[in-house]
Design a protein around this nucleic acid. Structure first.
Lengths: 247, 247
DNA sequence: GTTCGTTCATTTATCGGATATATCGGGGTT
DNA sequence: AACCCCGATATATCCGATAAATGAACGAAC
């Protein structure tokens, strides 16, 4: 693993980051959310730099970014400490990705889907009220991709994401649109669980119902149709829960 | 204003930040969301340091934090550029505070309240299903504070915040609980608008209805009761919209 | 004249050493 | 016992130098 506590410096450059700072950010973020520093204290800035073979500048900037995401807090003399999970910014795509990619994340995925039950039906209702013609075109395009994917001419996951993102954007509300990257991340992760259980492509008709209700400018129907869609996802996840762990 | 582009370095230390880095973070965050760099390019790291009278270390760490919050992006040769507003992390309390405290924020407040319509009723429903006895005690305590505030024995705003935060936490879902700080920030900002319009303390009975439904473990009633509550807020804001600007 | 590669200038990225500042805890004074 | 001062330790800040990335200008080859 790239976040080893051994004396061997990690190769942070070849990792996910564009540069050393982002590599260290990713390594430390993963280490924190997987609980590596629950028993042992978080290292000092000098120790971190030595352990990972980088300068203090790189170390300080990575720590500052993790502080901005709510994972760390630094004070003179006291040192740098991991914040309680309740203050982590779960709506930061990095944090969410680190959390979902760790082991035992089915529970978190279920909780995020519980949030989608609140968000996406209301976004669909708003889209039905205020969505523009271009918004509707985007939603229809996502649906078309799902149909194409059923015929093996497109990627099922990408098409599914495109549809849900289009609905969120069509709400015309930036706070709803913000869930775009999070839903995409969650869907990409969830596919690792749900794909093993079910054919998973049965819901194109349900998606079409959402699109039709938005096209008909019928908020109530759009809301219930989307709620049905997400409800199926939650049901599916709760079937998996306790049964499997990610690859 | 503390973010002047003049040649006079700002006194970042006396500002909101604990230190120079946080002072610069706050100053630059406000400047970005108020559109100061829409016409002029964002300064280079060397220019920033000179303008604000701080070292490049402080400058780079503040920029890195703003990058982590989605407001900036930095690349060699290209320089540091402000990201489009669609990629700002609106669920970061700093970003939300900067946005709400700027001028012309009534529209944003309305959009955030539109999100609360999705979140809080569902959180109330979850609280009715899964809330513990301690959760219910916290909700009742918040309600008691609102009643005390009506008699002038507590702060109305703090009591209102305590109630809504208690419901979010009682959902047992960390994603819902995450809205804690955002709702608090939004309420503190909204009071500047709504207080001038209405007595604003008329809703204690409505809040009690939410508590009672949660206590009775009746999710459907809790959901509709909370929806009524937030719906009133949206209605109030839409009354203000176009009428006033913040102090 | 167009295309491709080379050079060059600019900006961020990285390094490391020095000093300042905040803060906790111990020890001494009253 | 209460209070103040001092030292140890960690982050905070400043600084100067070098590396790396990248876009633009330049020029050579076809």
């Amino acid at each position: 693993m790239s976040t080893s506590l051994s004396t061997q410096p990690d190769d942070l450059r070849s990792g996910l980051g564009r540069n050393l700072t982002y590599g260290l950010l990713d390594a430390l973020g993963r280490a924190i959310v997987t609980g590596r520093y629950e028993k042992v204290p978080f290292p000092t800035e000098a120790e971190l730099a030595k352990q990972h073979g980088v300068s203090r500048s790189v170390t300080r900037e990575a720590v500052k970014m993790l502080t901005a995401k709510g994972l760390l807090s630094a004070r003179p003399r006291q040192g740098t400490v991991v914040q309680p999970a309740s203050s982590w910014n779960l709506f930061d795509t990095d944090v969410l990705r680190w959390l979902l990619e760790r082991q035992f994340s089915v529970d978190l995925l279920r909780q995020f889907s519980q949030l989608r039950i609140a968000i996406e039906p209301e976004a669909a209702a708003l889209a039905a009220q205020f969505g523009t013609g271009e918004d509707l075109r985007q939603i229809s395009a996502g649906l078309a991709r799902m149909e194409a994917a059923e015929r093996g001419q497109d990627d099922t996951l990408d098409a599914d994401i495109a549809f849900h993102v289009a609905v969120l954007r069509a709400s015309g509300n930036p706070f709803y649109a913000q869930f775009r990257d999070m839903v995409a991340t969650a869907l990409r992760t969830s596919i690792r669980f749900t794909n093993r259980i079910k054919g998973r492509t049965a819901s194109v008709a349900d998606h079409a119902a959402v699109r039709d209700a938005i096209a008909a400018k019928d908020p109530a129907t759009a809301r219930t149709a989307m709620r049905t869609l997400i409800g199926d996802v939650v049901e599916l996840i709760e079937t998996v829960e306790g049964t499997e762990t990610p690859a």
